[in-house]
């Protein structure tokens, strides 16, 4: 299944997506088995819970040259570990302030709740996110480590 071709001036961003094991990763699976299209520019990293993602992971992704980073998890009330996504939300708010101070554009990062039943939503969010990052172009913060 070839990824959807985008008019991107040949720019394929490097995008890291953190997906929780119980909802978002399964949502991505559903998008796959339903043959929904989304660009191949994302690299999915599965974590057991969105609450496991430390703000440092996102910063580190940017440091290593990511053009965009997306943090995904279960909807509130659906967390497999009861409150992991609430912790993710708190941490995300603090992280967003830091990314803003660093001058990283708002379109380059995000927090989204995608359930295991929302393959459509996964595909739509990834499409929109990748498109926005493509419009902004490369970030070039990359300091390889």
């Amino acid at each position: 299944m070839a990824p959807k071709k985008k008019d991107s001036n040949g720019f394929h961003p490097r995008i890291v997506v953190f997906a929780c094991n119980w909802c978002s990763y399964a949502g991505a699976d559903l998008a796959g088995v339903s043959r929904l299209q989304y660009p191949a520019d994302i690299r999915v990293i599965r974590t057991m819970c969105s609450g496991r993602v430390n703000p440092a992971f996102i910063l580190k992704a940017f440091k290593m040259g990511a053009d965009g980073v997306l943090w995904t998890g279960c909807h509130f009330g659906d967390c497999h570990y009861m409150f992991g996504n609430y912790r993710a939300e708190e941490n995300y708010q603090r992280l967003a302030k830091i990314l803003d101070l660093l001058g990283i554009e708002k379109e380059r990062y995000g927090l989204e709740w995608i359930s295991a039943a929302e393959g459509q939503r996964w595909s739509r969010i990834i499409n929109e996110f990748v498109e926005n990052v493509q419009k902004l172009g490369p970030k070039k913060l990359g300091v390889k480590s």
Binding site: N54, A56, F57, L59, K60, L102, V143, S145
Partner: peptide
């Protein structure tokens, strides 16, 4: 804090 502060500093190394 998982190295948040150190990573911020390492990002600041970027001239860009």
């Amino acid at each position: 804090h998982g190295g948040v502060m150190q990573t911020i500093m390492q990002i600041m190394v970027s001239g860009n």
